[in-house]
Nucleic acid binder design. Structure first.
Lengths: 328, 328
DNA sequence: TGATCTCTGTCAATCGTTTGACAGAAAAAT
DNA sequence: ATTTTTCTGTCAAACGATTGACAGAGATCA
């Protein structure tokens, strides 16, 4: 049986109230009593029951983190950074993998509410804004405008789109494609596309788009890319909205005998450690994953500390960097 | 304010006890009353407070999952599968990223205990067996012998080592290296090495090992691999204990102008979807990630249902498959 | 000496449920 | 008409803590 507060009190020769006061640092307690209580706690290997504490009104110290897919290296690294921060601060993370499933995401939201989490970091984007607006708990959103009461943290996707496209222009490309799925407004990809489109306009180049949805299978994507490269032989530059697609493109190009970067230049987006370590040739836009995680967590803490406090800023766009590499 | 049990009772025109009985399906309740209660619950958007329920003695429906690194694609995919299962069964997952830190891992264990999780899936291996033995909660372990009371689920690493090595032998390799870190017994890598060593013995070939620790940085690893390939020009086959190292090796070989598979054949280990999708040339040993996750979860449920029930089996080794590809 | 401050303790209410004991009513079976 | 079964309800204790009110002790200060 796990020891409880009264066991500690008995061992320390004092009342349960005193033990609770030592734990919560509440009221007047002499150092001597404190020491005795701590000793008893150690001896019994006592830990307060967090359930009981939370029921009493204390925080649960639990944070829900909803991501679209943990197997996506970008989100894996983001989650790892978030978890590191949270655990340093004594928080627990309930991880929710929402995939492309809005029903599942809604269930997660209900579940997190029922579990009295202190707050939520929402990185998945399947639900209507309505679902989030009527949600009572502190939320911060990653990369997506949810509601006016919810602060957004994300990379400056527009800037990234400009940087990547400009790099291709500067490298002399004349037929530059954008590969991604910018159909939904408010999507990060949409802003990357806008950066691309504006840069094309400035350089007097035509906009070319090849749709590639996030949830398509890699082999389907690869087939589509092959089709594209084979039929449109004039392509000399591609800005991929994510690195994984860029890798597929590099592979397809190699198989078709297209030389990178001589005949085709490629820039990706995300710049995870995984990519930097295992695909070091790929030029890409690096998102500041650690900073993003830090900002998400920091803002969430602020919301938790005072949910009614008006937001200083609704949106926090962190700068990205171009990583110049062999594919450009 | 969130509605509580008594609010539902009031709305449904019955006592709190009755509402609780409807929720818990306990005692005699007429269909008419049930319907009234359900209607009231829906109308108020009521959800039982899980904290209060758990405090009362119900399960928390929370599972702790401890992994060494969520950014490792293998663990990312394993965690995704585990989470999928758990969430289908109404469980929540607290994710713990232990890195190489035994102090952190011990803290996690304490934290999970304090949070009354129903059970733990332990995939990290920094702690002494002692720490786990005196742990009161149901545990299952991934790939590591923790204590006699803890069932182990893992791939048949020995078989994998044999398969990979035999494939290299069959392909005509004469100087086959093992790259990995088999120093600790009980490590998965150790059994992969044993499979390799036994296969070498059977084929009358010499064992060659190049240490490569899990936690070394990829660039350090790459440098070591370059050194190895440059100095030992006779190497014609390598069995890498994980795919990520294999990828580095392929890259290093390419840079040195060593042709794969003509001059050097490579087999990896893990066979994640990521590798199969984005490095489809790599021959590797595929671990059945979905089955591993399913088995871990199933065994944990059994432990939770009856912790005192003796284990039918201490160890569950799932078969692996050789994925023959261009690098062999 | 009296007033103030510090320490320790008891008591009871509270958080939101669950559940056993018990009672009474209606419905069904004998 | 009587017994049994089914339904609904009240009451109270419990889960393991927190915390305000209150009281009394000893120490310190004026």
């Amino acid at each position: 049986m796990r020891p409880k507060l009264t066991d500690v009190a008995e061992k320390a020769g004092c009342s349960p109230t005193t033990v609770s006061r030592v734990i919560n640092n509440y009221g007047y307690i002499s150092q001597k009593t404190k020491d005795r209580v701590y000793a008893a706690m150690r001896e019994l290997n006592y830990q307060p029951n967090t359930l009981a504490r939370s029921l009493q009104g204390k925080q649960t110290k639990m944070i829900g983190v909803i991501v679209p897919s943990i197997t996506n290296p970008f989100f894996a690294e983001l989650v790892a950074k978030i978890e590191e921060q949270l655990s340093d601060d004594g928080y627990k993370m309930i991880l929710c993998n929402a995939e492309q499933d809005s029903i599942k995401e809604r269930q997660y939201l209900r579940m997190l509410e029922a579990n009295q989490v202190d707050g939520i970091i929402a990185g998945s984007h399947n639900l209507d804004i309505e679902d989030y607006r009527r949600f009572g708990l502190p939320i911060v959103s990653f990369d997506r405008d949810l509601a006016s009461s919810v602060p957004i943290v994300g990379s400056d996707n527009y800037q990234g789109g400009c940087l990547a496209s400009q790099a291709l222009v500067d490298a002399g490309c004349k037929h530059i494609y954008f590969i991604g799925n910018p159909n939904k407004t408010g999507n990060p990809t949409f802003y990357r596309f806008e950066g691309y489109a504006d840069t094309m306009a400035k350089a007097n180049l035509t906009v070319h788009t090849a749709r590639s949805a996030f949830y398509e299978s890699p082999s389907a994507k690869a087939a589509a890319l092959k089709e594209l490269l084979a039929s449109e032989r004039k392509i000399d530059g591609v800005f991929c909205s994510d690195d994984m697609t860029a890798i597929l493109l590099l592979r397809v190009a190699k198989n078709l005998g297209i030389k990178v970067p001589e005949e085709l230049k490629v820039v990706g987006f995300d710049g995870t450690q995984l990519i930097q370590n295992y695909e070091p040739d790929l030029a890409t836009i690096v998102q500041p994953i650690g900073d993003l995680a830090g900002m998400l967590v920091k803002l969430l803490y602020e919301r938790i500390a005072d949910p009614s406090k008006p937001l200083a800023q609704n949106s926090y766009l962190l700068p990205v960097k171009l990583l110049k590499n062999q594919t450009i």
